[in-house]
Design a protein around this nucleic acid. Structure first.
Length: 179
DNA sequence: CCCTGATTCGC
DNA sequence: GCGAATCAGG
């Protein structure tokens, strides 16, 4: 693909709008994000300040122009893989529709509001049909299990089953994502 | 891992 | 002049 005046104009425009190089490359079509970035440089367009996106200005590697390339092999491998996957991903890029899931429900396992009609069974009293939801501090002697009737093969009664499997969802993802 | 922009340098 | 390969950082 040639950098026709029109394409260059579009590049300038999109870049000015703050689109990322990969997004611009997708819009223009036929070029990689690297091509876009390279062009941006040649045009001397303002790079992305250290603002929102990702820019680490004041970066001057300048290897010895005389020394042959001796990059880090380990990182090279990972870099390559990433690059290829990017290409495949970019072809799919289209429109993003954010569906905000407003979760107001905050599950709170109130340790006080104990539970239903706990049988206060000890570990030995448990059977296949008794709820095995632990109640209390395992290190204290008042520790016991719910002991209520539990459906078919479930290890918990209907009440505790909900508590056991409910809240584990969207909320977790956000948390896991952070780390 | 995925993504960003920045640089270098063979073509 | 181009842009893939790399690098560096989030």
């Amino acid at each position: 693909m040639n950098w026709t005046d029109e394409r260059v104009e579009k590049l300038k425009k999109l870049w000015a709008e703050g689109l990322s190089a990969s997004q611009i490359a997708a819009q223009l079509g036929g070029v990689s994000r690297n091509a876009v970035i390279g062009k941006v440089h040649r045009l001397c367009l303002p790079g992305r300040a250290k603002a929102g996106g990702t820019n680490t200005a004041a970066r001057t590697p300048k290897r010895n122009t005389s020394a042959p390339r001796a990059p880090n092999f380990a990182s090279r491998i990972t870099t390559r893989t990433v690059t290829r996957q990017q290409g495949a991903t970019m072809l799919k890029e289209e429109i993003e529709i954010e569906i905000e899931t407003i979760e107001e429900m905050e599950y709170v396992p109130r340790g006080n509001v104990v539970v239903p009609i706990s049988r206060r069974l000890g570990l030995t009293e448990l059977t296949e049909r008794t709820c095995k939801w632990p109640v209390g501090d395992p290190l204290k002697d008042d520790f016991h299990f719910c002991g209520c009737e539990s459906p078919d093969n479930s290890p918990y009664c209907s009440y505790h089953q909900k508590l056991a499997y409910q809240p584990v969802n969207e909320r977790r993802r956000a948390a896991a994502r952070a780390s």
